[in-house]
């Protein structure tokens, strides 16, 4: 276990995987697009707009999955004092924030034709918006230090605080929403999911997950190179 926590060792395993993961990403996303846009029926209530679901819902899952991964990586790094976990958390954050943004924007584009408005303060939308704030806070903190290793360690503490708070925030937003139920929204639940809709959803989710892994490896390589560059420069300054 400890052997793989060495970033160099990790990349030695991850690099050969990169072409395979990239291929899977393209394959799954292509299949997801085909199934989502052509092969799946339109919803009897939502019509064609249901096709937005095939990117909206997987990106919502990714938003949560990536934050969960960051919290796990940060926790392991803090407990066993391995830098790899901090690096994974840092490399994941922009991907997670992007998926959260996609989720919010596509949700908005889905809401306009369905509910007649770009935004409602619905419990789920609000929770995702707050998740986006947490990502932004993490990214701001991790980049706010001159010593990047220090920034990563501190930001891992933040991501854990956020992970503990997330259920509380979610609960509070649900509570708040039941107090202020918006009247305009008729149907908050997504369409009843039929198997012909489930497949594009699942395949697209796998595609998004693979995309996350690909970008994660690329960004880890950047981080690792940056660490080595810093060490060389520190060594030069010391001479």
């Amino acid at each position: 276990m400890h052997k793989y926590a060495n970033p160099n060792q990790f990349l030695r395993i991850a690099n050969p995987l990169l072409p395979w993961l990239s291929g899977l990403t393209v394959l799954c996303m292509g299949m997801g697009l085909y199934l989502g846009l052509f092969a799946s029926p339109k919803d009897y209530q939502q019509g064609e707009t249901v096709r937005i679901m095939y990117i909206h819902v997987p990106s919502a899952w990714m938003a949560m999955f990536v934050y969960g991964s960051m919290a796990m990586a940060g926790a392991t790094a803090l407990i066993w004092r391995h830098p790899l976990g901090h690096m994974i958390a840092k490399a994941s954050a922009p991907v997670g924030a992007s998926f959260t943004m996609i989720c919010l924007l596509t949700g908005s584009l889905w809401g306009k034709p369905m509910w007649g408005t770009w935004w409602v303060w619905d419990a789920r939308l609000t929770s995702v918006l707050i998740l986006f704030f947490l990502y932004i806070g993490y990214i701001a903190l991790v980049n706010a230090f001159d010593d990047s290793a220090r920034g990563q360690r501190t930001a891992s503490v933040l991501v854990l605080v956020g992970a503990v708070n997330l259920p509380i925030i979610k609960f509070s937003v649900d509570w708040w929403n039941t107090l202020h139920q918006p009247a305009s929204v008729v149907r908050m639940d997504g369409p009843a999911v039929h198997p012909s809709m489930l497949w594009p959803l699942l395949i697209m989710s796998i595609g998004f997950t693979m995309f996350y892994f690909v970008v994660l490896i690329l960004r880890l390589r950047s981080e690792l190179a940056a660490t080595k560059i810093r060490n060389i420069r520190l060594g030069q300054a010391g001479e």
Binding site: I55, P94, V95, T106, L109, R219, R221, I229
Partner: peptide, 28 residues
């Protein structure tokens, strides 16, 4: 609505990918 949703997703994901690759190449 549908095409802009797919368009935005494509743009954002491509941007993340391109920025990551460029940054990695630069650092290495």
């Amino acid at each position: 609505y549908i095409w802009s949703a797919y368009g935005i997703t494509t743009i954002v994901l491509l941007a993340v990918l391109v920025v990551s690759i460029r940054h990695m190449r630069g650092q290495e």
